[in-house]
Simulated scan of single mutants.
Amino acid sequence: MHSANCPLCQDQDAHNVLWRNDKLRVIDAGEPDFPGFTRVIWNEHAAEMTDLAPQDRSHIMDIVWLVESVMRHEIMPAKVNIAQLGNYVPHVHWHVIPRWPLDSRYPDAIWAAPHERSPEQQLAWDVFREQQWNLQTDYHAALRSALDSLG
């Protein structure tokens, strides 16, 4: 079931879709301060993992683990955060978030308030973030290739 009022139904064919199959899609979340932030989104409405059949739960988690693996290899974050929230949308979806000690919220959750930074710390982050954004084309290509190899 799809809904015109559901933001995750509306963006199923958006430009940020990196890969899709009949069950789910993988998108670039487009978070400016978190280059590489990727979401894995179930296409149909299902609010909880237990709403999915066991084989579908396995399928989505296989994709989440693959995203994490490619992310670690291609952009080498210090840590990867994985979260399943979805309080506002009836779609199971997973956030796969690369983290670095230079990011403004590290080591807290990305949803926490940013930490105060000195001008030098901000400059270091700006340079690092730009370097990470420059890796995104290769990360996306490697991710698509790995996902395509699943068949």
Rank of each mutant, 00 (worst) to 15 (best):
M1A: 14
M1V: 09
M1I: 13
H2C: 06
N5W: 02
N5P: 01
Q10E: 12
D11Y: 03
D11I: 15
D13E: 15
D13W: 00
A14I: 13
A14V: 01
H15F: 11
L18A: 08
R20W: 02
R25T: 13
V26C: 06
I27Q: 15
G30P: 10
G30Q: 11
E31L: 09
P32I: 00
D33S: 12
P35M: 05
F37V: 07
F37M: 08
T38R: 01
T38M: 01
R39H: 01
R39P: 03
R39W: 05
V40D: 03
I41K: 00
W42N: 07
W42G: 09
N43M: 12
H45W: 05
A46Q: 04
E48T: 04
M49V: 12
T50Y: 08
A53S: 11
Q55L: 10
Q55W: 02
D56A: 15
D56M: 12
S58M: 05
H59S: 06
M61Y: 03
I63Y: 00
I63S: 07
W65H: 03
E68L: 08
E68D: 09
S69Y: 01
S69G: 10
V70Y: 00
M71G: 00
M71A: 00
R72S: 12
R72F: 05
H73V: 11
E74P: 06
I75A: 06
I75E: 04
A78V: 04
N81Y: 10
N81R: 10
N81S: 12
I82S: 07
I82F: 08
A83C: 12
L85D: 05
N87E: 12
Y88A: 15
Y88Q: 13
V89P: 01
P90I: 05
P90R: 03
P90L: 09
H91E: 03
V92I: 09
H93T: 11
H95E: 07
H95S: 05
V96I: 14
V96E: 04
I97A: 07
I97D: 06
P98I: 06
P98R: 04
L102Y: 04
D103S: 07
D103F: 00
D103H: 03
P107D: 12
P107S: 09
P107N: 04
A109L: 15
A109E: 14
I110F: 11
I110W: 08
I110S: 06
W111D: 14
A112G: 10
A112S: 12
A112N: 13
A113L: 14
P114I: 04
H115V: 11
E116P: 07
S118P: 13
P119W: 03
P119I: 03
E120F: 10
Q121Y: 13
Q122V: 06
Q122C: 01
A124D: 15
A124M: 14
W125S: 04
W125K: 09
D126V: 04
D126G: 10
V127W: 10
R129Y: 00
R129M: 12
E130P: 01
E130T: 15
Q131G: 13
Q131M: 10
Q132K: 06
W133R: 13
N134D: 08
L135W: 03
L135H: 04
L135F: 01
L135R: 14
Q136L: 15
Q136N: 11
Q136A: 14
Y139N: 00
H140W: 11
H140A: 14
H140I: 06
A141T: 02
A142W: 02
A142K: 08
R144Y: 05
L147N: 09
S149D: 09
S149C: 04
G151W: 02
